[in-house]
Design a protein around this nucleic acid. Sequence first.
DNA 1: ACCTGAACACCGTTCAAGT
DNA 2: ACCTGAACACCGTTCAAGT
Lengths: 205, 205
Amino acid sequence: MTGAENGRRHTRDDVARAALRILDDYGLPDLTMRRLAAALDVQPSALYWHFPNKQSLLAELADRIVSRARPSESAYGGTPRIRAEAAALRNALLSYRDGAEVVASTLALGLGSPVARNRLAAAIAADGFGSETARRAATALLHFVLGHVSHEQQRMQYDSIGVLSAAPTASPLEEEDTEAEFVFGIDLLLGGLELARSRSAPARP
Amino acid sequence: MTGAENGRRHTRDDVARAALRILDDYGLPDLTMRRLAAALDVQPSALYWHFPNKQSLLAELADRIVSRARPSESAYGGTPRIRAEAAALRNALLSYRDGAEVVASTLALGLGSPVARNRLAAAIAADGFGSETARRAATALLHFVLGHVSHEQQRMQYDSIGVLSAAPTASPLEEEDTEAEFVFGIDLLLGGLELARSRSAPARP
DNA sequence: ACCTGAACACCGTTCAAGT
DNA sequence: ACCTGAACACCGTTCAAGT
């Protein structure tokens, strides 16, 4: 469906799109080079012309997933903008199955797109914080978002296979509103940031 | 070296210890069931008498790694105790190669020991927060700690293989003090927690 | 209680060679 | 520029059978 299917051979973009499709339809454990090759009607070795290895393919996917983040309406600055940026990131991760794990893994590998962190850092810096503070706070925010959404997506997976569910969850109030949990964590971090500002005098640049 | 090596067969504890040794010496990617079996002088299938699958073995390792956390001196409560608990968790994760990834992966799989989160939640609750707030804040703290230490450990690995280093890093001030970065994130979260308290309850004189 | 032997159904990656 | 064919060196897991 995506890319050139008759006559023409495949492009790097075709490969990435097919990979994203497998990811979204079957999940990260099923995204293997051999399965991807089969989906493209190609030998596994053919993929290595487009990507040097699987890690770099995953990095490309992470880039594409993160790039999908579109902060709502935008234009206002300050804390609301940071909050919007974090929410947009969460939505982008949720828009692909196992999206958070893909992004987290490539970020852990050092190749990871700095796009996500940079977006967050820019929003924080725009709120009047130094670039070093913005970088560190963005890292903390990013870790929370990735951890939170990873959890959320893994629960979806379990629920769909029915490991625990069928009957309503044992804890009706406890695990319910995952968005409220998300907002809680973001509020914690942003609250700490405000507090840091109010405490620091114009000491250092 | 660890466990029964002559006559006697192996116990579940032997298997876990040998696995921890491989993990620490060679890293998570090299911790395979086949390699572990070889280290124990046993067929791979033998491991499945002790653990139903690799995931449950990893969960056991995660439990052991987290249990190693010993908050320093202890006894005082409030924010210092929370801080000590987070630092102890970080140290425990750092005490095994790829420790953070092991714990993060099993936590993402739902089997993960709730030990880490419970410890943090208890410290927060002891500081006078409601159990629901404590649970959520502990989750945010845990995500930050795991994300931070994962990063830290992966950088160690890169440095040891020399992918980037040899010459001093391109950014002398930027990535330097990882502990300061850690404390920064913790302070952010604890600051937000204090702020939440001062807002929810009309101030005490 | 603990393990062997053998098999099943897979992996990622390399590399000469083809068009 | 893009791919085939064949191989290398692995994986996790199952299961009958042994002691």
